[in-house]
């Protein structure tokens, strides 16, 4: 009985002592952390994708709390809802960012762009790029080795076996930009998702002169500048033998799509072609 008592008492005393020491140590070395960081982190999507440019959601939350002006910061995954929720916690203003989506700017399918050599190295776009221009006549186009698909953490991409090109599953894409960084050819671009997900873009990145580009790929941009001339909104620029549509200026009038002689300009999610009615202003009003 005595033994039990002594044990209990001595252990109890030891425990209390340790607790008191721990309490004071914890007080002394307490690291102050803004409780709002936790609150902001709570509303973030916890995807830790790095799409915001910070290593993980917590780092982003810290940045949001620390910076006075958070208009430069954006969580592409959570979008406007998340950002306004986070801004509300901090009592800061947030600029409404347009939702973005990744776009593959190459349509060099096996049919459109014949293979002229065979690549036989490690399955990596970066390695193939360091070796040569690619297995087709186009040294700017997609190599089809799928480094972007490997980089996607949201299951928003797959390789189309038939075309040899990556396809973006729009509903899954959070516009984190991992694929954009992964592509050594800079083919993938984040573009404004557009009203009803409708958007128009040049699906080509070839910078060769017209004849060479056309020879390499039947749907290449040949820099004929027809689109630039017809565009009523000055949204199209042709630089370095390549047309580019500024998504902030484009009003989705679709004139360039019809004008392009090589069908290099693509439109997505528009209703199936009706008899020719063009109401550009009505489109943009939506």
């Amino acid at each position: 009985m005595n033994v039990v008592l002594i044990t209990i008492i001595s252990l109890g005393v030891l425990g209390s002592l340790a607790a008191i020491i721990l309490y004071f140590v914890a007080q002394k070395f307490k690291v102050f952390e803004d409780p709002r960081i936790d609150q902001v982190e709570e509303v973030l999507p916890a995807a830790n994708c790095g799409g915001c440019g910070y290593p993980g959601c917590r780092a982003f939350a810290e940045a949001m709390v620390k910076s006075d002006d958070i208009s430069d910061l954006n969580c592409p995954v959570g979008g406007a809802d998340t950002m306004s929720a986070a801004a509300a916690i901090l009592g800061k203003e947030v600029a409404a960012a347009d939702p973005m989506v990744a776009v593959v700017r190459c349509n060099g399918t096996c049919e459109n762009r014949p293979r002229i050599t065979e690549y036989d190295g490690a399955t990596s776009c970066t390695i193939a790029t360091s070796l040569y221009g690619g297995d087709t006549g186009c040294s700017n186009g997609c190599l089809g080795l799928g480094e972007c698909v490997d980089a996607c953490a949201f299951n928003a991409m797959y390789m189309d076996e038939e075309t040899g090109l990556p396809v973006i599953i729009e509903d899954n894409c959070v516009s984190c930009g991992a694929c954009v960084d992964a592509c050594p050819k800079n083919i993938i671009e984040l573009r404004k998702k557009g009203p009803k997900s409708r958007r128009i873009f040049v699906s080509c990145v070839n910078t060769d002169k017209g004849a060479a580009a056309k020879k390499a790929c039947s749907v290449a941009c040949i820099a004929c500048k027809k689109c630039q001339k017809i565009c009523p909104f000055d949204a199209i620029t042709v630089e370095n033998n390549l047309a580019y549509i500024d998504y902030n200026k484009c009003k989705l009038c679709r004139k360039c799509v019809a004008e392009c002689p090589t069908n290099a300009i693509h439109m997505i999610n528009f209703p199936p072609p009706k008899p020719k009615v063009e109401k550009p202003v009505a489109e943009s009003a939506e």
Partner: peptide, 8 residues
């Protein structure tokens, strides 16, 4: 044949 291109 189409030429094969691979790293050394």
């Amino acid at each position: 044949n189409r030429l094969t291109v691979s790293p050394s």
